[in-house]
Amino acid sequence: MKKFRKEILITILIVFLSVNAISQNKKSSVTESDLKTEQKHKKKKKKKVKLPKIDLSHWKVTLPVANEEGKPIEINPPEILDFASNEIAKPYMYIDSTKGAIVFHAMPTDSKTKNTKYTRSELREQMVPGDNNTNWTFADGAYMKGKLAMDATTRDSDGKYHRTIIMQIHGRLTNEQRDLIGEDDNNAPPMLKIYWDKGKIRVKTKVLKNLNATDEELLHEDAWDNDDGFNFEEEVGFRKFTLEVKVSEGKMVIVLNGNEFKVYESIHIRRWGVFENYFKAGNYFQSRDEGSFSKVRFYELEVSH
């Protein structure tokens, strides 16, 4: 009888130890799983916010939304430095912290700048913050470099992507030139327009209609015509790419991804030297189609003179 009780006690002890071991394994397993989950959460929490490498202290922005007078709203320095908190700017110029870029969003609205039917979310260089009257000439020299990408864009009725202007060199009349030719503003033609055009980069410049025009005659906008344009071979699509614009007296060079170069060095560029200029960068959308839009990401943008 005693032997039987002893066997029962031994059996109970073995069962107890087995159950306890299984329980310990389960606890250990659950703990490891919880630890892995916790580590994943910590990794997510540690994910750094990416910011664009762009100093906006020498830029103003024109937005595709109008003020009470029907003119496009502009934000100048220093207010532009806080654009991310500006409720008016938020839909059209905002930071994508996952990509580390400023997104410029444009679409057709009733807010259009003078002499155009298109709208823009676009930066305008100001060599002196808040002042449009201090600009540069080709003889002064200028350099702009941007790292950017098309974020999203719509298609037209033929299924082709809408295009947008992503960089410009815009001419400007001095006050003396403006008064000389009797204009009511300082606007002059853009010498350079760089397009994102159906996944490729297209460049357009101005050429004189009459090479013998006097210095006064070439100050008029109708003295200039558009050239035939130039397409870089590489298709950038929606990938990130770099553009450089190098300007010196009588010369303009456009560089795509450090590999392809387009050099302009002609009488047209030399005679353009009479104008002052400023850089523009962003999204000057080239469509009025209903429901159309584009978004351009700028990761980096730098200018020097």
Rank of each mutant, 00 (worst) to 15 (best):
Gly229Ser: 06
Lys209His: 12
Leu218Met: 13
Asp215Thr: 06
Val203Gly: 02
Lys204Asn: 07
Asp197Cys: 12
Thr205Gln: 10
Lys198Glu: 15
Val236Met: 05
Asp225Leu: 11
Leu219Gln: 00
Leu208Phe: 02
Lys204Ala: 07
Ala223Ile: 01
Trp224Ile: 00
Gly237Ala: 10
Gly237Ser: 07
Ile201Trp: 05
Val236Phe: 02
Asn226Ala: 10
Leu208Ser: 12
Leu218His: 00
Phe232Ser: 01
Asp197Lys: 14
Ala213Phe: 10
Asn226Thr: 12
Asn231Gln: 04
Asp222Ser: 15
Phe241Cys: 14
Gly237Asn: 06
Leu219Glu: 03
Leu218Asn: 03
Lys209Trp: 03
Glu234Ala: 11
Val236Leu: 05
Thr242Gln: 05
Lys240Arg: 08
Glu233Arg: 08
Asn231Pro: 00
Glu221Trp: 08
Leu208Asp: 05
Phe230Leu: 06
Ile201Gln: 00
Glu217Ser: 02
Lys209Gly: 11
Val203Cys: 03
Gly199Tyr: 09
Asp228Thr: 11
Val207Thr: 07
Glu216Ser: 07
Lys209Val: 05
Glu221Val: 12
Ala223Val: 02
Glu235Lys: 15
Lys204Glu: 12
Leu243Glu: 02
Gly199Pro: 00
Val203Gln: 14
Ala213Lys: 04
Glu221Gly: 09
Lys198Asn: 14
Thr214Met: 08
Asp222Met: 12
Asp222Leu: 15
Asn210Glu: 14
Leu208Gly: 04
Val203Thr: 13
Asp215Cys: 00
Asp228Lys: 12
Glu221Leu: 14
Arg239Ala: 11
Asp215Met: 03
Ala223Phe: 06
Leu219Met: 10
Asn210Asp: 15
